[in-house]
Amino acid sequence: TEELDSELELPAGWEKIEDPVYGIYYVDHINRKTQYENPVLEAKRKKQLE
């Protein structure tokens, strides 16, 4: 659920942004990119696909 997503600790260099226009998204300051999917959940999903 969304509530559990926010409890996950983000990897180093990541920041969660709550924007009133664009909603919640994540900033990867190391690689200078943004995405809507939580990077922790993304990594778990990719691992399940292997």
Rank of each mutant, 00 (worst) to 15 (best):
residue 25 Y to F: 10
residue 39 P to I: 00
residue 19 D to G: 02
residue 6 S to W: 03
residue 20 P to A: 04
residue 1 T to D: 00
residue 11 P to K: 10
residue 12 A to G: 12
residue 6 S to F: 07
residue 47 K to A: 11
residue 44 K to F: 09
residue 30 I to G: 08
residue 25 Y to V: 11
residue 11 P to E: 05
residue 21 V to D: 06
residue 9 E to V: 10
residue 42 E to V: 10
residue 28 D to F: 00
residue 49 L to K: 13
residue 29 H to Q: 03
residue 39 P to D: 06
residue 45 R to V: 09
residue 38 N to I: 02
residue 39 P to W: 00
residue 34 T to Q: 09
residue 14 W to S: 03
residue 45 R to F: 07
residue 22 Y to R: 14
residue 31 N to C: 10
residue 39 P to L: 02
residue 23 G to S: 01
residue 44 K to R: 12
residue 10 L to M: 06
residue 43 A to K: 07
residue 28 D to H: 01
residue 11 P to L: 05
residue 8 L to I: 05
residue 36 Y to K: 12
residue 11 P to C: 07
residue 40 V to P: 04
residue 47 K to P: 10
residue 16 K to G: 02
residue 16 K to M: 08
residue 23 G to R: 02
residue 31 N to S: 10
residue 34 T to P: 03
residue 1 T to A: 03
residue 24 I to W: 05
residue 4 L to M: 15
residue 39 P to G: 04
residue 42 E to H: 02
residue 10 L to G: 02
residue 11 P to W: 02
residue 39 P to C: 00
residue 35 Q to H: 02
residue 14 W to F: 03
residue 45 R to C: 07
residue 11 P to D: 04
residue 44 K to Q: 11
residue 9 E to N: 04
residue 40 V to N: 13
residue 37 E to S: 09
residue 49 L to T: 13
residue 34 T to H: 04
residue 42 E to C: 06
residue 10 L to S: 04
residue 46 K to C: 11
residue 1 T to R: 15
residue 18 E to Q: 01
residue 22 Y to F: 10
residue 14 W to N: 14
residue 9 E to A: 15
residue 49 L to D: 15
residue 13 G to Q: 06
residue 19 D to T: 04
residue 26 Y to T: 03
residue 9 E to S: 11
residue 18 E to H: 11
residue 35 Q to S: 10
residue 18 E to L: 06
residue 30 I to M: 06
residue 27 V to K: 14
residue 36 Y to H: 11
residue 15 E to G: 02
residue 7 E to I: 06
residue 47 K to R: 09
residue 38 N to D: 09
residue 12 A to T: 10
residue 32 R to I: 04
residue 15 E to N: 03
residue 24 I to Q: 08
residue 40 V to W: 09
residue 35 Q to L: 04
residue 2 E to K: 08
residue 7 E to S: 10
residue 45 R to W: 05
residue 45 R to Y: 06
residue 10 L to T: 02
residue 50 E to K: 07
residue 25 Y to R: 09
residue 32 R to Y: 00
residue 24 I to P: 12
residue 40 V to T: 14
residue 38 N to M: 10
residue 32 R to V: 05
residue 47 K to F: 07
residue 9 E to Q: 10
residue 39 P to A: 05
residue 48 Q to I: 15
residue 27 V to W: 07
residue 31 N to M: 03
residue 26 Y to F: 10
residue 40 V to Q: 04
residue 44 K to E: 14
residue 27 V to Q: 08
residue 4 L to P: 07
residue 17 I to W: 06
residue 9 E to D: 13
residue 14 W to Q: 01
residue 11 P to H: 02
residue 16 K to V: 06
residue 13 G to W: 04
residue 5 D to F: 13
residue 24 I to N: 01
residue 4 L to G: 11
residue 39 P to H: 00
residue 29 H to T: 14
residue 31 N to V: 01
residue 32 R to T: 02
residue 31 N to P: 01
residue 1 T to C: 05
residue 13 G to T: 00
residue 33 K to G: 04
residue 5 D to M: 04
residue 4 L to T: 13
residue 8 L to F: 11
residue 12 A to N: 09
residue 41 L to R: 13
residue 12 A to E: 15
residue 38 N to C: 01
residue 26 Y to D: 07
residue 13 G to L: 01
residue 33 K to S: 08
residue 29 H to M: 04
residue 12 A to Q: 07
residue 34 T to G: 03
residue 5 D to S: 15
residue 21 V to T: 15
residue 35 Q to N: 03
residue 32 R to F: 04
residue 13 G to I: 01
residue 49 L to I: 07
residue 28 D to Q: 00
residue 47 K to C: 07
residue 37 E to G: 08
residue 39 P to Y: 00
residue 29 H to K: 09
residue 7 E to F: 07
residue 13 G to Y: 09
residue 25 Y to T: 06
residue 41 L to N: 10
residue 2 E to W: 15
residue 25 Y to P: 05
residue 17 I to M: 12
residue 28 D to N: 06
residue 50 E to G: 06
residue 14 W to M: 01
residue 42 E to A: 08
residue 14 W to V: 03
residue 17 I to R: 13
residue 31 N to W: 00
residue 29 H to S: 07
residue 37 E to P: 02
residue 10 L to H: 01
residue 27 V to R: 12
residue 35 Q to Y: 10
residue 39 P to Q: 03
residue 5 D to T: 15
residue 47 K to L: 13
residue 36 Y to R: 15
residue 24 I to G: 08
residue 10 L to W: 02
residue 29 H to N: 13
residue 23 G to T: 00
residue 42 E to Y: 05
residue 38 N to G: 03
residue 7 E to G: 14
residue 6 S to Y: 11
residue 27 V to G: 05
residue 30 I to S: 06
residue 42 E to M: 06
residue 39 P to E: 03
residue 27 V to E: 08
residue 28 D to A: 00
residue 49 L to M: 15
residue 31 N to T: 10
residue 31 N to Q: 04
residue 22 Y to C: 12
residue 32 R to S: 10
residue 43 A to Y: 05
residue 25 Y to K: 14
residue 44 K to N: 10
residue 48 Q to T: 09
residue 43 A to Q: 13
residue 45 R to D: 09
residue 19 D to Q: 01
residue 5 D to P: 14
residue 4 L to N: 05
residue 14 W to D: 02
residue 14 W to G: 03
residue 41 L to E: 12
residue 18 E to W: 01
residue 29 H to C: 03
residue 4 L to V: 12
residue 27 V to F: 07
residue 8 L to H: 10
residue 41 L to K: 13
residue 8 L to Q: 13
residue 48 Q to N: 15
residue 49 L to W: 07
residue 46 K to W: 05
residue 2 E to I: 15
residue 9 E to M: 11
residue 31 N to E: 04
residue 16 K to D: 01
residue 25 Y to E: 07
residue 4 L to C: 02
residue 24 I to R: 08
residue 9 E to I: 06
residue 33 K to F: 02
residue 7 E to M: 12
residue 15 E to K: 05
residue 2 E to R: 11
residue 23 G to L: 00
residue 28 D to S: 01
residue 41 L to S: 13
residue 8 L to A: 12
residue 13 G to A: 03
residue 11 P to G: 06
residue 38 N to S: 12
residue 41 L to V: 14
residue 8 L to T: 11
residue 40 V to H: 06
residue 4 L to A: 11
residue 47 K to D: 09
residue 35 Q to W: 03
residue 7 E to W: 09
residue 31 N to F: 01
residue 41 L to W: 10
residue 49 L to E: 15
residue 27 V to Y: 04
residue 49 L to Y: 12
residue 10 L to Q: 06
residue 46 K to Q: 13
residue 19 D to L: 00
residue 38 N to K: 03
residue 44 K to C: 13
residue 16 K to R: 13
residue 47 K to V: 14
residue 8 L to S: 08
residue 22 Y to T: 09
residue 27 V to C: 12
residue 14 W to E: 04
residue 8 L to V: 06
residue 38 N to P: 03
residue 37 E to K: 06
residue 29 H to W: 03
residue 49 L to H: 12
residue 18 E to R: 03
residue 29 H to R: 08
residue 2 E to V: 13
residue 18 E to M: 07
residue 30 I to A: 11
residue 25 Y to N: 03
residue 12 A to I: 14
residue 24 I to L: 08
residue 49 L to R: 11
residue 20 P to E: 04
residue 36 Y to F: 06
residue 42 E to N: 06
residue 46 K to P: 12
residue 36 Y to A: 11
residue 11 P to M: 09
residue 33 K to W: 05
residue 36 Y to V: 11
residue 26 Y to V: 01
residue 23 G to M: 00
residue 17 I to A: 08
residue 17 I to E: 04
residue 17 I to K: 14
residue 4 L to Y: 03
residue 31 N to I: 00
residue 28 D to G: 00
residue 9 E to K: 11
residue 28 D to C: 00
residue 23 G to P: 00
residue 27 V to H: 06
residue 15 E to M: 07
residue 8 L to M: 13
residue 5 D to K: 15
residue 50 E to D: 14
residue 9 E to G: 13
residue 14 W to P: 02
